[in-house]
Design a protein around this nucleic acid. Sequence first.
DNA 1: AATGAATGAGCCTTCATTCAT
DNA 2: GATGAATGAAGGCTCATTCAT
Lengths: 227, 227, 227, 227
Amino acid sequence: MKIPREGAAKTRQSLLVAASEIFAEKGYRDTTIAEICERAGANVAAVNYHFGSKQTLYAETWRHAFSESTKAHPPDGGVSSDAPPEERLRGQITAILQRLTDKNNREFWFMQREMANPTGLLEEVLREEIHPLHRRTTALVRELLGPLATDREVNFCEISIVSQCMNPAVARKIREAGSTAQDGPLGIDDVEAYADHVLKFSLGGIRALLEAMGKKQKVRKKLRKQP
Amino acid sequence: MKIPREGAAKTRQSLLVAASEIFAEKGYRDTTIAEICERAGANVAAVNYHFGSKQTLYAETWRHAFSESTKAHPPDGGVSSDAPPEERLRGQITAILQRLTDKNNREFWFMQREMANPTGLLEEVLREEIHPLHRRTTALVRELLGPLATDREVNFCEISIVSQCMNPAVARKIREAGSTAQDGPLGIDDVEAYADHVLKFSLGGIRALLEAMGKKQKVRKKLRKQP
Amino acid sequence: MKIPREGAAKTRQSLLVAASEIFAEKGYRDTTIAEICERAGANVAAVNYHFGSKQTLYAETWRHAFSESTKAHPPDGGVSSDAPPEERLRGQITAILQRLTDKNNREFWFMQREMANPTGLLEEVLREEIHPLHRRTTALVRELLGPLATDREVNFCEISIVSQCMNPAVARKIREAGSTAQDGPLGIDDVEAYADHVLKFSLGGIRALLEAMGKKQKVRKKLRKQP
Amino acid sequence: MKIPREGAAKTRQSLLVAASEIFAEKGYRDTTIAEICERAGANVAAVNYHFGSKQTLYAETWRHAFSESTKAHPPDGGVSSDAPPEERLRGQITAILQRLTDKNNREFWFMQREMANPTGLLEEVLREEIHPLHRRTTALVRELLGPLATDREVNFCEISIVSQCMNPAVARKIREAGSTAQDGPLGIDDVEAYADHVLKFSLGGIRALLEAMGKKQKVRKKLRKQP
DNA sequence: AATGAATGAGCCTTCATTCAT
DNA sequence: GATGAATGAAGGCTCATTCAT
């Protein structure tokens, strides 16, 4: 009747895996401890025994999903830090998109749910994990826009780029494309094609900002000459 | 003990308003009928009397929020259809952003929750209400990219533009900026500034796509000359 | 919007009819006032307005169904009181069976429900309406069994006869036969055939009792001769 | 505050017993889970924990009552299958009546309620449990009537016999007699006396049918001789 | 260490009845 | 006189958590 357990903490891992799947699929509220335990092949009391509460398990699961994801997809997309900024931007864009569309990755859905239904417990995770990524992108954008850009311009620009990658509709479309349609090359192909597009589009956007800054600069210089 | 009933559908409206607020704030599951009724100043049974069930009320509320939103913010942003496409693009961007950041508008949060936790009931609303908006933007993008662009290019481009407007992080930031910070001009100012940015950035992106298409065109012409 | 009502008490009658149907079909508890009023084309408050309460309507309905039934099916089955007792027994048996299987008759189902789930309110009706019928049959049985039969013998015999007619399984079978099968002669044919059977069977039973009494009588006479 | 749990299925049994009593007394609808649990000394959630739902508990209770009843009262009434058919008929009649009037037996009241207010769930039980009993009686009747009797005659005859035993009025009378009146010998005595009566009455009925068949037979023979 | 029975708070829903028009 | 909105008392069920082994 009992499953042979080689270690005490094997159940813990099973619970984490089961929870990861179900939480990502149904969200916190619609997930029941019973279901998690059943899928994990454990007792109903197992969650409270190993994690203390549903809340704690949730947080733990989130953390786990996030760190797994970061491990699997390095934020630079495999591009060397010596590469030209355009290349590094491509790396970051690809990284986000791959991370997002990795079938084993629940992180994105956790985040979606959190944004829609913040539990508060995860603000902390967001700060610790997401902000560094943002700062990395912000730094790159600053590099591309040059020192003349205001902080707001850099901020907006970073939002523009990341938004294109994080739009849930995008994620869903890609996912569905890969799962429903002729489940073959299209999935991956799509992601790469979209990454190319985002890079091209964003570089165009950045160039437009640079040109506008240039004009302003000239105007200011003119004005300075004739006060 | 009884509230004076001045009209038949007055309670109904109160319930709709209360539900709109609480559903948007907490989501379907975490919202209790009791809370809605209490805020609406009605009896616990009022929801089931007027709407039949929590589900129905939810759908009704969603629908209501959406149509109110469409009414308040015409999708062209008040720009004439005779205006040049760049102006019309500004109109659409502004429309989405205003719609999103309108304090009385819960629609966006409903949508967020639905994407995270689909009830299935709302697929229909999505199709009926969202797709037309997308088609409108797609048509405009096609106009800007010209007939040489592929459907995929147009599609990606439309996603790029809309994503920048619909990013929940943006919405949240703007909202929080308007509500927590010096609750003053910053809110609206922010939206307008961001709209300007998105327009500029996107036009830059589009121009980049056009140029890329031009090069391809030239290459093809060359190839055609020397077979 | 309002149905033209020629009299005040027209609604009352509609309610009674609707209630009769639904109570008989579903029983007291499973019937809702709302359903009754809907079928009667009246307001939800109509029942309480016209009858004071659900209980009262129930009692009223029962009484109504019962008296209607007695009116429609005279307990002697149309057989003259001058006819020989066997004929009169046939009349009574036929009367009960017809009464029971009359499609417009809810009375039997009310009784069934009452026996299973007595409301207490109806004890009175039972005494007033059922007992006279029983006494009538008892008298006839006494006539058939002669003065030598004990009261218990008469009582048992009466039960035997009436039981054969009132068995709900019988009622159900006949009803279903008439409603599902080729909804034609079979229904009535069945009833008549069964009535014939019950008469024959019961007269046989009575004769057996008489013979047994005869033997006892002889024994007693013998015993009396040889004290 | 907590009841010592000596065994796993002890609570289950308590619930079954309590449910059996209350369901039989009040019927499905008028019985509340709370009452059952209270009487069983269990928590309000106990029913749903052990049985899943009120419905399931009801079905389970019914099944339990029925099988208990069959166990306690073998359908042949203790008469050997070698005994003459009249004796076996006495056995069956006695078995039904004893079963019906057994004070610990709720089965009959369940059945009454079901016939009046079918839940549909129990059709199955009826088929599995009741039909075999009927077939047994039918076979015996066929034996008594001989091969010349039509199926309908056998069927009607079986109904006549069983009806006399199953009449709820009989059951009620006997029960009340045993419980209210000089709660003594009358109860059991009554049942035996009534069983005697039913046997005698039914054998008389059967003989009458046989005689009628004999006449028909003679007529047919005559007709065959003079075509 | 781990289980499964048990708990109790809370939720949605139903429904007979009452109230204000 | 009659309506339909409103009420509040339950009832069945779910579920995270606790307890006794």
